[in-house]
């Protein structure tokens, strides 16, 4: 069956200049497991558009690198 990649706007964004190399706090705690570390950059990013906009990733980031926006469909 044919599959296509699609562009999606995702709600959680990470400021790579603040994200600490080696820290996985936001990845560890996301209830939906939507965050991951990009092996190319060692920075966190949102790997799937699955978000309850609950916010611990932003609230507990030690360098305030994480921003939770509303998912586009709800904005």
């Amino acid at each position: 069956m044919p599959l296509v990649p699609q562009r999606l706007d995702v709600p959680v964004t990470i400021d790579a200049s603040r994200c600490i190399d080696g820290c996985t706090l936001c990845v560890d705690i996301c209830p939906l497991d939507s965050l991951a570390i990009d092996p190319a950059t060692n920075k966190a990013y949102m790997h799937v558009d699955e978000c309850w906009y609950c916010g611990p990733c932003a609230a507990r980031c030690p360098t305030s690198a994480v921003t939770v926006n509303m998912p586009y469909l709800l904005r």
Partner: peptide, 15 residues
């Protein structure tokens, strides 16, 4: 599976 990189830094150590 992505390897988890390590580094130090005091913030990381505390976390």
């Amino acid at each position: 599976p992505a390897p988890v990189p390590t580094s130090d830094g005091a913030v990381l150590a505390v976390l």
